[in-house]
Every structure is written in structure tokens, then in C-alpha cells.
Design a protein around this nucleic acid. Structure first.
Length: 662
DNA sequence: GTAACTCCTATTTTT
DNA sequence: TAGGAGTTAC
């Protein structure tokens, strides 16, 4: 029996997507076509109709936020209590990978409590390693090595597979592949995995232990994948292998693929039907978000892309207001103009109903300034994330080391924070001792205490540090982790160092917030896992101070959001499409920039403002800018003719504006 | 440890 | 060209 509520308020294709029983299903869901709705209803329906038990469906997303939302919505649809909701396998690719790997770590020779390195940990490790190995090459900077290795992992390439890349000289190839290998060795020695490993090590695990793979293949009768267009090679292989024996349903939109620089492959969508010959494809083309005008404008733009499946979004809604284009003198003028428009709209619209979307985060400064000047409340979406803040990482590293003495990376980070006069020299001493004994840095530190390689003052400090770790470790056995955190921050002098500095108000605030977060969890291992995998603690994103604020966001960070009023700014050659994309990526990269523009436009529900400037500060130099090619690709009849001609400011050689082409 | 200096880089950033 | 990171000198 079908409970009708699963199909309530769904259109025909949406209903089909919820009900479809094919072993492979691809839902091509256009922007604003009710994708999340379909996904959650489908999941709820499968459970409700008994097609799968609560632990037999695996749903993967790309962000923790999306996973959380899906879990909540499914739980609400089915009236699940908390313990049942928790049994749902809903999470990110990386979260699921970590879960699997912790369960079967020993197969790959890791401890179950391996540490997860974030990008900055990874970079620090690579830097240290390249210094150690005297791998010095102006081209292969640690930064480039780190990002290349990440990318190779995304593409499913190990140290021995670099021949498949477009690495130029074979001399490089050998050196780099050796370095890559030594990085992997080092990770193993540290009992650590980086983000890429969380996925690729799953594939290794399944190769090595087919019975483990079979276990999960049998368990999961249904596999659901959200934002499928953003899957990279490893993620694709991961889900494909897991889906054997069960049904696979992917939901995505080729027009919203904006992460190819992280390995996402358009091919996954274009070739789905080849890879799964019996696949059914359902298109969701009715848009419930934007006005007809906005839909026509964005559709006209995206039509210029060649590599796409092709969809035509439609709506029964009204035409709505035409798009407005503003030609600004420069970036400051553009920001002032946006501010004026916002203030003009504000009696009708709340600030929170409006958003400014930018290509690069450096553009946000201009708008922050203008908003500040006119007292427009705003919020910058993205920016520095909670878990990436120095004081939070420090605190987490104290906990990490107390939790696992083997965590050398945590040791390195905090051994001299706050300053204990244990600088590079002391660290070297400790490292040598650790290497000699084949142990961790903390063990090395214990050994150093019995030698006389360090001065007496340093030894006292080191002794205190080691003792603090031992005590905190013991405390973790018997008390709540929050008590250990308090002890660590107090007795290490960290708290004092922060308190002494008058300017550190935000630091204190952040540490307090971390403490609140920690007090709500019941096991430290789970907390550390989340700290590694989630860049914001739960609640941070949705925390609402009750103030209505304009959102300033990069285009990337805006995917999945919607606003009644959207300002899409900086539509200039070099910025959108971005110069680097045009120079390096060629036609494919321009298509991605076009998709990015499309994503921005389709965020708007009622009113879409576009703008570009005639002069733009680039690398701190004011340069003439020309209107983006994308503007010409937007159907002219969706755009309001400009009423006023902007006169050039006197002098300074600004070219007179040409007659606009729209 | 800190200040002064030099060098370098300058897109997006789910995990 | 500015701002940050890293280095050197005191």
C-alpha cells in the first residue's frame, strides 16, 4: 500500500522518480525542480513499503549540511524517533568512507583510531617531508605537491599511475612518484589518512578483502546519490562497486557541475546510460523557483554549452520582472549601486531575502565596505570556517594528542603553543629520539627527558607537557572529554595566553563555543571524527541571531540556495569567465564558468540584477574591463533596456562606453 | 622573541 | 600593488 503523502504535491515525473523500481535510475533534476524533495520522498517510500530495512539503504551526499537535512526530512516523513533516525545510513562520501575504514582498518594495516588529516595538515606534512627529503624545486612547491596529490587521488591515481597524467618530463615523473609514495608511507607510519584516502582506501580495502565488499553489497539494497554531477572518479568507482546487487539511484544536474577542478566528471552523467545499460532516465524540468523571465534568461545562457544532456525548464508561473543590467564605473560604484537598490527594495523585502553573488572572494570586500557605510546588515557566507580557526585547531590538537599518543601531527602543532621555548632545535632533538626508538614524538619526548640534549629550562617545560598529556589521557578514561579540555587549556597555559591578549575576544568566544559543542557529545572519538570531517559544528550554520541580513556569497557556495532577489555582479571578461579558466582550461573551462553563471542566475526567484564595471582593480591595478560574453548570450527580450546613459567621468582616459548590446 | 626585511603570489574550496 | 609568509638579524 502506498501512503499517499509520499506523492502529495508532486508532479508526474517527480512521482515517477519516487516510485521507479529499475535497478539503475538517473534523475536529471533541473535547478529548482524539487530535487531534494524527490530524493527524500523516495527514500521514505522505500522504507515505508518495506523494500529495504532501515539499515539497508545508503544515501550519500557531498556536504554534511545536505546529509543532515536529508536525515531530518526523512525522519519527519516517517515519524522516526531519534534512535531509528540515527540508524539510517545517510552521510557524505567521506564520512561513509571513514566509517567503513574504521571498522576494517586492520585489513589495510591501520589502527581503527587513525587520524584524519585536513588539507592544512596535509600541506604541513608535505612541507616537512619535502624539507626532510631535500626535495626542493621551485615548480613543485609543497603547495603544488599537496594539491596535485589530492587531485591524483580524486582521479584514482596512485604513485605508480602518474604515467597517465600529462606530466611533462619523465625525470619529473619518477621523482614525483617517489615523493608521492613516500608521503603515503609517512601517512601509514603516522596511522593517518587524508581526505582522498578516505575514499581510495575503501577501494583498496575491497580489493584486498572481497568478503568485506560483499558484506556491504549484500547489506545495501538501495544506494542513493545526491549531486551526482559532482562525483569524481574515485567516488564513481566507489558507488558503482557498492551498488552491485542493489539498486542505484543518482540525482544530479549536468548544468550545475561546478567542481571539475576537484575531479568532478561530466562524463559520469553523459555516460551513465552506457555504464548501466538498463538504466532509466527521468527528467525533472518543471521549475518551482524562478519567474518565467529568469528561467528564460538562464536557459538561453546555458543553451550555449555544447557538452550537456539538454533540458528545457519551464514554469506555470508569471513572467515576472525583467532582468536589470547596470554598467558601473568601477567596483566601488558597482557596490554602491547594489547598496542603493537594496535600500530601495527594503520596505518590501527583508535584507535576508537578498543576496550578492560574486565570482571570487576578493570581491566581497567591496560590498562589505559599501554595506558598512550605509548600515546595511550583511553576512558573508563561507569565509573562514569554524574548525579552521587557529585556536580551535590548537584546542582540538590538544585533545587529539591526549586521545592518541601516536598523533605526531598534533604534537608538532602544540608542542610550542603557547611558547614553551621548545623551538625547532628542541623539536629536532625529540624527532631524533623518536626515530631512534621507532616511536612517536611523545615517546621521543620521554626519551629526551632522560638525556641532556636540552637545557634545564626546556626540560622542565617538556616534563610538564608530557605529564599534562598523561594526566589528560587518564582523565579521558574516567571523565567527560570537556573536563579534559578544560584541564588541557588551563594547565598548558593556553587559556592564560589567550586571556592576556586584549585583542583575542573572538578567540575566547570561539573556544567557549567549542566547549559547548564538546559538552554535548558523549564520546571523544566521535567528536574528533566530526571535527576532522565537518568544517562547521552543527548549529553554526543555522544559528540565527534574529537579524535579517543580506547574504554575500561566492557562486560556488551559493549552490542549493535561493533568494527572492539576487545581484550577480562582476560580469566581466577575466572575472566571469575567470581569466585563469580561459587561459588554462580552454573551451571546457569556459563552459564551467557558464554553468557557474547559470547557477548564480537560477538562485533568483523574483528579481535578478546583473552588473559589470568598466574599470576593475585586478592585482591592485585599475584596468579597463569589458562586459562578459555571457551577457550577450542572455536573450535580449528578458532584459530591461537601460534608461539612463552613464556618462564617463571627466578625464583619466576612461574609454567612452560603447552602446550596450543588450 | 620580535622586528625588519624579502619574496612571492594573486579562483572557485563540498570533505 | 598589497598582503601574507617566510627569513634574517638583533
Amino acid at each position: 500500500m502506498i501512503t499517499p503523502s509520499f506523492l502529495d504535491h508532486l508532479n508526474e515525473p517527480q512521482q515517477q522518480a519516487v516510485m521507479a523500481s529499475e535497478p539503475a535510475l538517473m534523475v536529471l533534476a533541473g535547478a529548482g525542480s524539487g530535487k531534494t524533495r524527490v530524493l527524500t520522498r523516495r527514500l521514505a517510500r522505500l522504507l515505508h513499503q518495506g523494500e529495504a530495512g532501515i539499515g539497508e539503504i545508503l544515501a550519500v551526499t557531498f556536504t554534511n549540511k545536505a546529509a543532515l537535512e536529508m536525515r531530518e526530512r526523512v525522519a519527519a516523513l516517517l515519524n522516526l524517533d531519534e534512535s531509528n533516525a540515527r540508524r539510517l545510513w545517510i552521510g557524505t562520501f567521506h564520512g561513509m568512507g571513514a566509517r567503513l575504514l574504521r571498522t576494517h582498518a586492520e585489513v589495510l594495516g591501520f589502527d581503527a583510531n587513525f587520524t584524519i588529516l585536513d588539507s592544512s595538515d596535509q600541506q604541513r606534512l608535505i612541507k616537512r617531508l619535502s624539507e626532510q627529503k631535500e626535495f626542493i624545486d621551485p615548480y613543485w612547491s609543497p603547495k603544488r605537491l599537496a594539491s596535485s596529490i589530492s587531485r591524483w587521488k580524486d582521479d584514482g591515481l596512485g604513485p605508480d599511475d602518474l604515467g597517465q597524467t600529462r606530466m611533462k618530463a619523465s625525470r619529473d615523473l619518477l621523482r614525483i612518484s617517489e615523493f608521492y609514495q613516500s608521503y603515503q608511507d609517512e601517512l601509514r607510519r603516522l596511522n593517518a589518512m587524508d581526505f582522498g584516502d578516505l575514499l581510495s582506501n575503501c577501494l583498496k580495502l575491497w580489493d584486498r578483502a572481497p568478503e568485506v565488499l560483499a558484506l556491504y553489497q549484500n547489506r545495501f539494497r538501495h544506494l542513493l546519490v545526491d549531486e551526482y554531477q559532482d562525483a569524481n572518479k574515485v567516488q564513481y568507482d566507489w558507488m558503482r562497486r557498492l551498488a552491485v546487487g542493489g539498486a542505484l539511484c543518482v540525482v544530479g544536474d549536468d548544468d550545475q557541475l561546478i567542481y571539475s577542478w576537484r575531479g568532478a566528471r561530466l562524463d559520469n552523467i553523459l555516460k551513465f546510460e552506457e555504464d548501466f545499460p538498463d538504466a532509466r532516465v527521468i527528467r525533472l524540468e518543471q521549475n518551482y523557483r524562478s519567474s518565467a523571465n529568469i528561467l528564460k534568461a538562464s536557459g538561453g545562457l546555458i543553451d550555449h554549452n555544447v557538452g550537456r544532456k539538454g533540458k528545457t525548464l519551464w514554469t506555470t508561473g508569471e513572467a515576472g520582472a525583467p532582468l536589470e543590467v547596470y554598467v558601473a564605473e568601477d567596483g566601488e560604484d558597482e557596490a554602491r549601486h547594489v547598496t542603493r537598490q537594496i535600500l530601495r527594495l527594503v520596505p518590501d523585502k527583508g535584507f535576508h531575502e537578498m543576496a550578492v553573488l560574486v565570482r571570487t572572494s576578493s570581491q566581497t570586500r567591496l560590498f562589505e565596505q559599501a554595506f558598512h557605510d550605509q548600515n546595511v546588515p550583511y553576512r558573508v557566507s563561507g569565509g573562514l570556517r569554524f574548525m579552521d580557526r587557529a585556536e580551535i585547531k590548537d584546542a582540538v590538537c590538544y585533545l587529539r594528542l591526549a586521545h592518541s599518543f601516536r598523533d605526531d601531527l598534533a604534537f608538532e602543532r602544540i608542542i610550542n603553543v603557547p611558547s614553551r621555548k621548545l623551538g625547532p632545535k628542541a623539536l629536532e632533538e625529540i624527532q631524533a629520539a623518536a626515530r631512534g626508538a621507532g616511536g612517536s614524538l611523545l615517546e621521543g619526548a620521554r626519551l629526551v627527558l632522560g638525556q641532556k640534549g636540552l637545557g634545564p629550562a626546556a626540560l622542565v617545560q617538556l616534563q610538564k607537557f608530557v605529564q599534562l598529556m598523561d594526566e589528560a589521557h587518564a582523565l579521558l578514561e574516567v571523565a567527560h572529554p570537556v573536563e579534559a579540555l578544560d584541564k588541557l587549556l588551563e594547565e598548558s597555559g593556553y587559556r592564560e595566553a589567550v586571556d592576556l591578549d586584549e585583542r583575542r575576544n573572538d578567540m575566547r568566544e570561539n573556544l567557549r563555543e567549542l566547549r559547548i559543542f564538546l559538552s554535548q557529545v558523549d564520546d571523544l572519538a566521535g567528536f574528533l571524527e566530526r571535527a576532522a570531517l565537518e568544517s562547521d559544528p552543527p548549529g553554526t550554520e543555522r544559528r540565527d541571531d534574529g537579524v535579517s541580513r543580506v547574504v554575500i556569497s561566492t557562486l560556488h557556495a551559493a549552490k542549493g540556495l535561493e533568494f527572492p532577489v539576487v545581484f550577480l555582479v562582476g560580469l566581466e571578461e577575466g572575472l566571469l569567465p575567470h581569466k585563469m579558466a580561459v587561459d588554462e582550461g580552454g573551451a571546457a573551462a569556459v563552459e564551467e564558468e557558464r554553468r557557474l553563471t547559470y547557477v548564480g542566475m537560477t538562485r533568483a526567484k523574483e528579481k535578478l540584477f546583473l552588473s559589470h564595471a568598466r574599470m576593475r582593480r585586478m592585482y591592485q591595478r585599475l584596468e579597463p574591463a569589458i562586459a562578459s560574453r555571457f551577457l550577450k548570450e542572455i536573450p535580449a527580450d528578458t532584459v530591461k533596456k537601460r534608461e539612463t546613459v552613464i556618462t564617463a567621468r571627466r578625464g583619466v582616459g576612461i574609454p567612452r562606453p560603447r552602446r550596450p548590446f543588450y
